[in-house]
Nucleic acid binder design. Structure first.
Lengths: 226, 226, 226, 226
DNA sequence: TATGAATGAGTATTCATTCAT
DNA sequence: GATGAATGAATACTCATTCAT
């Protein structure tokens, strides 16, 4: 009985923590970390300054927690895509790319913070971001190594290629987020996939690639279609 | 006669302005824009605070001028590479890529500022950086359009591809700058070139690509070989 | 019947009030008034913040009540010592001094608060402390006046002498409390008594003074002997 | 020439530092350390907040410097009094006491801060104050040891006696400062001296003690006669 | 009656910018 | 022109107190 009450209180606390996190993400993605004051965040979250500090010990911590949130979403995206059929490397590659891109396209605020609004602040944040992007790079490297070992593709230098791949994705997403790239998310995924498939010497057909992309989006990211 | 004196004074002023700019770039690339104080810059430049303000009207302006400096270097790189023979598209592509990458590899401080240490500060800087990266993207787009029109390569979506190309370059350079990518600048250029040439369906030989890279580096960026 | 219940409730309330007071005294004597937070006190007392405020209306009040507690102990010390035989002025003086000193030596926490940890905070506390020290001074002044009127001692200025006497006592106790004076409490009392007896031109023997000190300690403050 | 300018600038800086120190001492002695804000001090000193921080690195430091100022004055008082004739122990004792007391009586603000308004704040300040009072105690202990060795006085326990002596002085001064002791500074010195001379078994005449007190005050502290 | 989450006033400190010398 | 002392706006964080449950 008491346990029950305790659990409910914990749940409520976590819900509020998440709400503040969301509000902070909104503010950071608009103003950037530096120009966002604690007051801005508490106003957005409709709480008091004191309340903020009972959930987060300082301003740095809330950005770190936002990073953790993004990081978890990235991992989720990776794991989601890794479940896709291992026999069909085109489907596997396309689905992985699609899942990764959709996660970032879906969580615009978090992506903006990760990719733009929190850079160049300090070493701690820089390290955190490196870790997160590095995780994506590592995941792509694993995939490339797998393809390479099975002679399914030709790669000159896996290390460099995985970095190149990661940043081509994030670069395109960043431009899409700030609307300097005005096209549908599906077009972006299609172009990225076919471009890289060609670079990796993997034969594909447009129809198949399109089909695999649609499959992933329709089953997990319908909201990105509009 | 008076004109002469005036010109000499102007020259002297500009020299000092450049020296401050250099000092500021050093400080920014080490500490980042936020953590670099005017005092840090004036100490590095061995001038007084008052002097600083007779050359730059505020802290923002000096970063803007550093951006302009970087921008000019980018343009120079682009123009340099565009002089290369128009008949040989492989040489043209490889030389363009090499020049662009070398410019950023050569000016580490400026690159760090552009690509890391000044991001996420405010809209003005964000716009400036977008412009500079956009210029590179635009240049690459022109090249791709040229190749495409002449049926020398196959590209699905030039807009997206040029963005992808730009960010794959900068991504790799950034990782090289912060030493999370430990390989020679030549390896990086070679991998980037061959990867993209394959993606663009342009036939090449490793020997030729290597030769073109060496040509550019030997004639313009010997200091990068060490 | 109802009265009985009411009384019991009142007793219980007072017991809890005293427990909180004790906890607060512990915290204040360790951290000082300023650095002690209400949370510190409620943690020490194992109660909730809300509970604290149903017993005390604010932070100032609990210190005031601690002062009152100390004040009562001071009065108790004074009254205890005044019951001593009026014929023997040496015994009277020695016993009074011994009782006063022992009360403060016995209640280290309260003494630390009164003499060190609550000074210089604000006028209200300063007034309270002055009152308490003043009460001791007043008591000593009465004694001196009595001795003086009966030509049992020679005093130039009773006002000044009583103040001097009070602070010499508290000064020595303070140094003993913070361990910058490392000797037994009996040595302290003996030295203080004989010093002041000489100053007051009262003839005494070491044996007698020692005897009177031992008497008081043995009957009331045995715990201070170890 | 340049040296001259530099020296003048240094002098000016030190003058301003002292002025701020004085203003801070006024504010602290009125409001106490805790309730005095940096704004209060800068208002009193008619300077800006920024200026304050170019002279002192934080709020703690200015109190420490005030302590150092008091400490130096104490040492000066001690050295002044130690120059007095060594043959006449009554003159020596009386002059030392007079000098010490006058220094504190003359610098009311500093004394209030040392003896009341900065107590119980934190360990750092407590340690500093202990050091300062300890220095006085040490000085008195040296004097008592000298007298004792030459069989010029009788002392039971020098350690305790020097502490007792110190606090009797500061206690009386504190009461005089807050006007709970309403008498002339000369009366205070006379009573203190004769009381302690008696306690130390040193024969004296009122006339001589009075003469020695007057000598010191007239030559060094005329302003206290008002 | 007891709880502890929520409140928000209050403050030390920084640093870009100015301007008298 | 050059200097650097002076300025003061801006902001993260604390903690005594309240009050809905």
């Amino acid at each position: 009985m008491d346990d029950n009450i305790l659990r409910k209180t914990e749940d409520k606390k976590d819900l509020k923590r998440k709400a503040i996190l969301k509000a902070a993400a909104d503010v950071f993605s608009k103003k950037g970390y530096i120009d966002a004051s604690i007051k801005d965040i508490t106003n957005e979250a409709s709480i008091s300054v004191g309340s903020f500090y009972s959930y987060f010990s300082n301003k740095e911590e809330i950005l770190i927690q936002i990073f953790d949130e993004i990081s978890n979403m990235s991992m989720e995206a990776a794991s989601k895509s890794s479940k896709i059929s291992k026999d069909n490397i085109i489907e596997q590659f396309t689905s992985a790319m699609t899942s990764a891109i959709c996660i970032y396209a879906k969580n615009k605020e978090f992506s903006k913070i990760l990719l733009v609004k929190s850079m160049g602040i300090n070493e701690l944040f820089e390290k955190k971001r490196s870790e997160i992007l590095g995780r994506i790079t590592f995941y792509l490297k694993m995939m490339l190594e797998h393809l390479s070992k099975q002679h399914l593709c030709v790669i000159d230098n896996i290390e460099i290629t995985s970095v190149l791949l990661t940043h081509s994705i994030f670069g395109v997403i960043t431009n899409w987020l700030n609307e300097s790239l005005k096209c549908s998310i599906e077009d972006i995924i299609f172009s990225l996939c076919t471009y890289h498939l060609k670079a990796l010497n993997i034969n594909y057909t447009d129809e198949n690639v399109n089909k695999y992309i649609k499959n992933v989006i329709n089953s997990n990211y319908k909201e990105l279609l509009k």
